[in-house]
Design a protein around this nucleic acid. Sequence first.
DNA 1: GTCGTTGCAAAGCGTTTGCAGCCTA
DNA 2: TAGGCTGCAAACGCTTTGCAACGAC
Lengths: 122, 122
Amino acid sequence: MERNTRQRVAIRSALERAERPLTPREVLERAQGEADSIGIATVYRALQRFEEQGLIIPVHIPGDPARYEIAGKGHHHHFRCRLCGRVFEVAGCSGNLERLAPPGFKVESHEILLVGLCAKCR
Amino acid sequence: MERNTRQRVAIRSALERAERPLTPREVLERAQGEADSIGIATVYRALQRFEEQGLIIPVHIPGDPARYEIAGKGHHHHFRCRLCGRVFEVAGCSGNLERLAPPGFKVESHEILLVGLCAKCR
DNA sequence: GTCGTTGCAAAGCGTTTGCAGCCTA
DNA sequence: TAGGCTGCAAACGCTTTGCAACGAC
């Protein structure tokens, strides 16, 4: 049976307060803010379990380690600034991606990553 | 000045003959077929240089190591079958992705990954 | 008290780098 | 012959795992 330890509470809370997807290391740093002496291995194990439970969503950015964000934000995609490396959420979706697939293929989901300059770096 | 060694010829040739994006390890295995005793480090160094030269394009699939394909195929994206794991090319693009970005952001490029079932696995 | 969870350290794995020798131009 | 290129092995960074101690229920 699943247990509610102070580490998991801190990790989950860090993700809930995050304004953008976090890497495991970032999760660790933020979680340590409210419950110190958490190990990185614990973060990885908690992230795995949260993902299995559908509590968080993995966000993959080419070249970077995986990031995670709280699920239930609705359908959206991401924008990475090529100068500062930050990742932002972008609402909405171009839609109609099914027609891109070859005949006979079934599209179940998709990921879109925009790359460019954020307002600050521009 | 750039040199044409037998290793680079083999690596490049492997990519040119590939019917899909290859991982560095796959490149190594195919290149060894025509010029043995190539080291994995050489493959990585050649891929880096080829990418800088715009000769090849990196393809990032969440969870997998980077793959590379010959450039010059025109703008396209990729489809991964969630059952067999194969990666296919899909031509075209939904276009008009710039409007998704927040005001003040500049979109320079994008990547789209479709996930679903290929014709065979369906 | 049970047994899921944790921290640490070691192991894994893909990728990069230092270096001495090799080989293309 | 010069200096870019190579193979090897060590180093690296991120992630996973083994294990004994811990602590939620």
